[in-house]
Simulated scan of single mutants.
Amino acid sequence: MKIIKFETWWLKRDKCLFDQKRKGKSNMDWDVVVLKLTTDTGTEGIATALAARSGQVTESYLHDNIAPVVLGRSPYDREKIWHELWNIDRHLTFFPVYLPGPVDVALWDICAKAAGLPLYKYIGAYRTQLPVYASGLFHEDPEEYVREALYYQSKGINCYKAHPSGPYELDMKIHENIRNAVGPDMKLMSDPVAEYTLEEAIKVGRHLEKLNYEWLEEPFRDFELDKYSRLCAALDLPVAATETTRGCHWGVAQVINQKAADIVRADVSWKCGITGTLKIAHLAESFGMQCEIHTTTMNYMDLVNLHVSCAIRNCKYFEYFVPEEDFSFPMKGLLPIDEQGVIKVPEGPGVGAELDWELIEKLSVSHRAEVLEA
């Protein structure tokens, strides 16, 4: 079995999901590139790639730099292809962080389908479901965090992560308001995506300890390892990091070595696919650490995250980015979350989800295909 066709569809959307402070003056429509790899047996591997800053850049990298590596190859050569792409990233250019992952996902999807197995069983199953936590966007109105947490609590989801927008004094008030509103039993997390000083982060972390939060995530940029090490030493509350750390498992290894996180983060979009995410999860497991899988902001790829989470032991939750309607495109249907706030892994071959190809064709501004020459 070998790959004979490499196709992409660039889907343009006039939508921005971030506030002005994080968007800046740069264009940030929430574009998506759909990737399809087809083998000589007719088996297809599907993935989606984030293209929030430039769909044209994402699509061009895929065709100019990655398609030549993949065409004509066996999808079972995933590890070899993964390392070749890593070498290209190092010596030719730096790929956007979310670029190699979808290619790796499509290769895994092909192999799981060929085996007639759901992806998590093809990897090696550990469980079939996880509790979800609703993970909201940045809100300019501080009261929106309370309303959002209460809404998802009413839907049976008893876990919520806030992304307060700063400054840290306001974030602390938001944390307290949420806890007071939802009561003592709801699991809560905070991810300010912040640029706190060390002193500010310690104050916020100690406040969260009193409020019985699960963790504090990304209070600094991921490369500020000394600040993270000192923060972890100062708090009993777990500190989660490595969401944007470059270098896949090699980068995360430096964080673990410097005791700069208590929980590491990974996902199949930003950490070089299923292959890269498994490397990070297994690395964390060897140090007795949780690897909490991070949303890809795309429901289809989040289902891939779920398969990985159900094939490892050291992940406690599924991150459910809300409102879901903003992230479901271009997948058909919604995520399989029940009334108790539990998501169950699909049992169909491969990823076990369908894309809306009629909508993809309608919204596509570009469709490119590379075909293996005979």
Results as ranks from 00 to 15, higher is better:
residue 273 G to H: 02
residue 62 L to D: 05
residue 251 G to K: 05
residue 301 M to E: 13
residue 114 A to K: 01
residue 115 A to V: 03
residue 181 A to R: 06
residue 48 T to C: 14
residue 86 W to L: 11
residue 140 E to H: 10
residue 316 K to Q: 10
residue 259 K to A: 15
residue 29 D to N: 12
residue 139 H to Q: 15
residue 106 A to I: 12
residue 252 V to L: 06
residue 66 I to S: 07
residue 240 A to N: 02
residue 99 L to I: 13
residue 306 L to S: 11
residue 42 G to R: 05
residue 222 D to A: 12
residue 204 V to I: 11
residue 268 V to I: 10
residue 270 W to V: 06
residue 86 W to C: 09
residue 338 D to G: 07
residue 193 V to T: 12
residue 233 A to H: 01
residue 326 D to L: 14
residue 274 I to S: 00
residue 10 W to T: 14
residue 347 E to V: 07
residue 127 R to W: 00
residue 284 A to T: 00
residue 81 I to C: 02
residue 293 I to P: 00
residue 313 R to V: 13
residue 162 A to H: 06
residue 289 M to Q: 05
residue 172 M to G: 06
residue 89 D to Q: 12
residue 128 T to P: 06
residue 125 A to Y: 11
residue 77 D to W: 04
residue 71 L to C: 05
residue 195 E to I: 09
residue 200 E to H: 01
residue 268 V to A: 02
residue 71 L to T: 00
residue 241 A to V: 04
residue 247 G to H: 06
residue 102 P to S: 11
residue 72 G to R: 08
residue 120 Y to V: 04
residue 84 E to C: 00
residue 213 Y to S: 09
residue 256 I to E: 09
residue 88 I to W: 03
residue 7 E to T: 14
residue 124 G to Y: 00
residue 116 G to Y: 05
residue 61 Y to W: 12
residue 12 K to N: 07
residue 244 T to P: 05
residue 45 G to R: 01
residue 219 P to S: 15
residue 98 Y to R: 03
residue 352 G to L: 11
residue 58 T to Q: 07
residue 121 K to M: 08
residue 119 L to V: 06
residue 162 A to Q: 14
residue 198 L to H: 12
residue 45 G to H: 01
residue 122 Y to S: 04
residue 344 K to G: 13
residue 158 N to Y: 11
residue 166 G to F: 07
residue 26 S to M: 15
residue 162 A to V: 13
residue 213 Y to P: 01
residue 364 S to H: 05
residue 40 D to M: 10
residue 342 V to S: 02
